[in-house]
Design a protein around this nucleic acid. Structure first.
Length: 483
RNA sequence: CGGGGCGUGGCGCAGCCUGGUAGCGCGCCUGCUUUGGGAGCAGGAGGUCCCGAGUUCGAAUCUCGGCGCCCCGACCA
């Protein structure tokens, strides 16, 4: 490669040139996922799946810590069950996959492949719940779901995807509301701590809420191209499903009551979110906490390096492993060090350790950060604790950087003119007063393709009159173009 | 679902207009020399030209139909 300012990695379309092509290049070149022979469905490759497993493990621990238990419900749902809740069917009917035959025989009743599991779980809850003593029920399931999408993107929107869906039933309305908000908080903390992805938590408008919910809450993240990504949702279902699925219990006062329910989910889409939050022209940048390889060791082959350099590299590998660092030693001799640098950078490994004869002579290694490319010679003595500290620092810096980006790309609009002007560029989030009317929300969407991502959780008076109709504002809203 | 683009060794593409031996770069295999930011030389393997019909002596190329993917718009995690 020629010297100078050429990019280190040349196999990826630059982010600034074509963001969506950059995204696809990163997913494929980093071997996170690949297209499959099934339309709209992708294969999550081992490296991508390893990220998902790390995300799963830490989210699952949080769900357990908040009292939830895992279970598994059927993939197929009888048509009649899905149809019970009117708003729910209406919302999902256009995108369900139908099973009409078993072998050669046509089924008596068609089955849907679950787009979500409220119907089947509600049916079971009505069998399991009799008394207030059975409550609350706090069940989560890790599963695949299918939604027949017309347009698909790797990770962001595929016909089949993996997720976690929590389904709870409570004695009181207040308890259900508290649960929905509590899980929203879990999602926010998870996104920010594990994924270094800052999110706005808030409430969805009527038109954007989950089909069948009373209230939907969401966390919304800002991607590198200024578009928002819904990163998790939590619903207060009220008694909507309890009424149609007949989920009743005898209350403390001996009366029969319907339970109050919640549901909440997070998906493999978040992997797409991580890519678009942190990545750069050289490819992926993974937050250390979800990086399958947190550190790669690249030995520099010189002379009889297998006798001189490699043993030292192995010692370092062992020391780091013992210290709990996920480390990989790249001792392949078919590739040059430079090739390996580029390759592992593209795959987002947060930290690289270079070790060659010159380093060994000085009892040091070269530490190179993926996010800043800062190089620092570091003594081999005490390396593990230095690496651990640096990984923590990188995790923090990624969050700080993403937060700074979001702050720089969040603006206020006090008037319709300011608002329109903002959306002619790539503003990110725009905070503006809204009257609360569907019509204004819809007309802005039609005009500017900008939607209300969510509304602040804490009810605060609007900062002015509705940017659309000029009537008194009811609340400020977060607008953005969304994925 | 509308508008546009593209389907040719694993990947990226040329060839198509004007029908006649399938080609280039990267990757892959073997060997030697190398290795501190995607190494060099030599030799080699690898193809239903997306699928199906049609026109023709002859189709990657022309015609019709289908499928898939990408991008931009309406619905969704």
């Amino acid at each position: 490669m020629p010297a100078g300012r050429d990019p280190f990695v040349t196999e990826i379309t630059p982010r600034s040139e074509d963001f969506s092509r950059w995204y696809t290049d990163v997913v494929r070149r980093a071997e996170l996922a690949d297209y499959s022979p099934v339309k709209g469905s992708m294969v999550i490759r081992p490296y991508g799946y390893a990220i998902w497993e790390l995300m799963q493990a830490s989210l699952d621990a949080r769900l357990k810590a908040t009292g939830h238990v895992n279970a598994y419900f059927p993939l197929f749902i009888p048509e009649s069950l899905l149809r019970k809740e009117a708003a729910h069917v209406e919302g999902f009917a256009p995108e369900v996959a139908w099973v009409t035959h078993g072998g050669d025989e046509e089924l008596e009743e068609r089955l849907v492949v679950r787009p979500t599991s409220e119907a089947i779980i509600g049916t079971m809850y009505s069998k399991w719940i009799q008394s207030w003593r059975d409550l609350p029920i706090l069940i989560n399931q890790w599963a695949n779901v299918v939604r027949w999408e017309k347009v698909t993107r790797l990770f962001l929107r595929t016909t089949e995807f993996l997720w976690q869906e929590g389904h709870t039933a409570h004695e009181t309305e207040a308890e259900a509301e508290a649960e929905a908000l509590r899980m929203l908080g879990v999602y926010k903390e998870f996104a920010e701590r594990e994924l270094a992805m800052p999110v706005l938590d808030g409430r969805k408008t009527e038109s954007e809420k989950f089909a069948g919910a009373k209230v939907t809450y969401s966390i919304e993240a800002l991607m590198g191209d200024g578009r928002a990504l819904q990163a998790g949702t939590s619903h207060n279902l009220g008694q909507n499903f309890a009424k149609v699925f007949d989920i009743t219990f005898q209350a403390r006062d001996k009366s029969m009551q319907h339970v109050w329910q919640t549901s909440w989910g997070m998906t493999t889409r978040l992997i797409g979110g991580v890519i678009m939050t942190h990545g750069d022209d050289s490819g992926l940048i993974l937050p250390p906490r979800i990086a399958p390889h947190q550190t790669v060791i690249v030995p520099i082959p010189r002379g009889n390096w297998r006798e001189t350099v490699l043993p030292r590299a192995r010692e370092i590998e062992q020391a780091l492993t013992a210290a709990g660092v996920r480390v990989v030693l790249d001792d392949r001799d078919v590739h040059t060090p430079g090739w390996k640098y580029a390759e592992w950078e593209m795959r987002g490994v947060p930290l690289r350790i270079e070790i060659g004869p010159r380093d060994i002579a000085q009892s040091q290694v070269m530490l190179v950060r993926r996010d800043t490319r800062d190089k620092s010679p570091t003594p081999i003595d005490g390396l593990a604790s230095r690496v651990t500290a640096l990984l923590g620092q990188i995790q923090q810096d990624l969050l700080d950087r993403a937060l700074r980006f979001r702050n720089e790309h969040t603006m206020r609009a006090g008037s319709h003119d300011e608002f329109v002007q903002a959306f002619q560029g790539r503003p990110g989030f725009v905070v503006a007063p809204w009257c609360g009317g569907d019509a204004c929300e819809a007309s802005i969407k039609a005009e500017l393709q900008a939607t209300i991502r969510n509304l602040p959780l804490e009810p605060t008076p609007a900062s002015g009159d509705c940017l659309r109709c000029g009537q008194p504002g009811q609340t400020d809203a977060y607008f953005a173009k969304a994925y």
